[in-house]
Amino acid sequence: MSTMTATERISVPSPRPRRSTRGRASSIVLGVVAWVVGLIFITPVVWMILTALHSEVDAATNPPSFFAPLTGASFAEFFGASGGVNPWPFLINSAVASVVSTLIVLVLSTAAAYSLAVRRIERWSDVLFFLLSTKMLPMVAGLLPIYIVARMFGILDTWLLLIIIYSAMNMPIAVWMMRSFLAEIPIAVLEAAEIDGARLPRVFLQILLPLTAPGLAATALICVIFSWNELLFASVLTSTAAGTAPVFLTGFVTSQGLFLSQVCAASLVISVPVLAAGIAAQDKLVQGLSMGAVK
Rank of each mutant, 00 (worst) to 15 (best):
L131I: 05
L106H: 07
F79Q: 00
T71A: 12
A81H: 07
A117R: 02
L116Q: 06
V96R: 02
L131W: 12
S101M: 02
S101C: 08
V118P: 08
S74G: 02
L116A: 08
L108T: 13
V105W: 01
V85P: 10
G84W: 01
P69L: 03
A68Q: 10
F129V: 14
R123F: 15
P69R: 05
N86S: 14
S94Q: 06
T110N: 08
T110V: 11
W88S: 10
S74Q: 14
G84S: 03
I121A: 09
V118E: 09
V85H: 04
T110G: 06
A112K: 03
I121Y: 05
L91F: 15
A113V: 05
A97E: 03
S65L: 11
W124D: 12
P69S: 10
V99A: 08
W88M: 14
F129Y: 11
Y114V: 02
P87V: 12
T134M: 13
E122W: 15
S98P: 01
S65A: 15
E77K: 08
G83L: 04
S101A: 13
N93S: 12
S115H: 06
A112Q: 07
S115Y: 04
N93K: 05
V100P: 01
D126W: 13
E77H: 10
V96I: 15
S115P: 00
D126C: 11
S109W: 07
L103Y: 04
F79G: 01
W124L: 01
A112N: 11
S94T: 07
P89D: 03
A73F: 09
A97L: 00
N86H: 05
S109C: 09
G83N: 06
L108Q: 09
S115C: 08
P69F: 01
S74C: 00
V96T: 09
L103H: 09
I121H: 06
L131P: 04
S74D: 04
V127Y: 10
L132V: 14
F130A: 15
F79T: 03
S109D: 05
Y114M: 11
G83C: 06
I92K: 13
T110M: 15
S65I: 09
W88L: 15
R119P: 03
G80S: 01
E122Y: 14
V99E: 08
I92Q: 13
R120Q: 14
G72E: 04
V107P: 01
V107N: 05
F66T: 02
